[in-house]
C-alpha cells in the first residue's frame, strides 16, 4: 500500500484527535514498519487494517464511518498533491468516470507496483453514474468517502446508494444520482 495513505491517515488523526492518539496507536500496535511512513514509500496493507481497527477502538467510532471520513479527507489531500487531475475534469462525474481508465493508468506510470482497486463504470443517464468496486482489500467505505469528497470538491450534491454485491464486501455497487 502506498505510503501516502498511511501518512495522510496519521495526518488526519493528528488533525482531529491530536498527535497523542497517533503516538498511542503507533506504540500500541506491533507494526513491522515501526510506525515510520513516508508518502513515497510502500507498506503492508495489514498495517493499515491494524491502525484503523485500533483507532476505532480508541475513538469508539465504527470502522465504516472512520474509513468514509478518511476518504473525504484523502480526496482533499489528493487535490493538493495531484491538482492537475482535478483541474482536468470539469465535474465530479467527469472525474469519477476517468478513475479506471485515466487516473489509475497514470498512477501506475509513477508506481508500477501500485495495487489499485478495479472499477467498472457506466453512465446510464446524464445525472446518473454507476461504479462497480472490486478489490480484495475490501475498502469500499474508503472509496465511498473519496466519492463524497469528490462531490464536495465540485460543490455538487448527489444521492449515493451503496449496495454490497458480495457479502465479504469485495464487490460493491455505487449508484450515484445527482440532485
Amino acid at each position: 500500500m502506498r505510503g501516502i495513505v498511511f501518512t495522510e491517515l496519521l495526518e488526519m488523526i493528528e488533525d482531529k484527535f491530536g498527535y497523542e492518539l497517533v503516538d498511542k496507536l503507533l506504540q500500541e500496535s506491533d507494526l513491522p514498519s515501526g510506525g515510520i511512513y513516508t508518502s513515497i514509500g510502500k507498506y503492508d496493507h495489514a498495517e493499515m487494517l491494524t491502525l484503523v481497527t485500533k483507532l476505532s477502538q480508541k475513538t469508539q467510532i465504527p470502522m465504516p464511518d472512520l474509513l468514509r471520513s478518511y476518504g473525504q479527507y484523502m480526496f482533499v489531500a489528493f487535490t493538493r498533491s495531484y491538482r492537475h487531475f482535478v483541474d482536468r475534469a470539469d465535474s465530479a462525474f467527469s472525474l469519477l468516470s476517468s478513475v479506471q481508465h485515466y487516473i489509475h493508468v497514470e498512477v501506475r506510470k509513477l508506481y508500477p507496483d501500485a495495487e489499485l482497486p478495479h472499477f467498472i463504470i457506466d453512465q446510464p443517464a446524464e445525472n446518473h453514474l454507476r461504479m462497480h468496486y472490486i478489490s480484495e482489500r475490501k475498502l469500499a467505505d474508503f472509496a465511498y468517502g473519496l466519492i463524497e469528497g469528490c462531490l464536495l470538491n465540485y460543490g455538487e450534491k448527489a444521492t449515493i446508494t451503496k449496495t454490497n454485491l458480495v457479502e465479504d464486501g469485495s464487490q460493491v455497487l455505487f449508484d450515484i444520482v445527482k440532485k
Binding site: 498527535y19 503516538d23 503507533l26 506504540q27 515501526g34 510506525g35 515510520i36 513516508t38 508518502s39 513515497i40
Partner: peptide
C-alpha cells in the same frame, strides 16, 4: 517523549524518503 518519538519517526521517514528519492 512524545515529541522525541515524533522527531525520530519524522527523521527516519525523511531518511527513508531520501533514500527512495536517491534511487529514483
Amino acid at each position: 517523549d512524545l515529541l522525541k518519538r515524533r522527531l525520530i519517526r519524522e527523521k527516519t521517514a525523511r531518511l527513508q524518503a531520501e533514500a527512495i528519492l536517491e534511487t529514483k
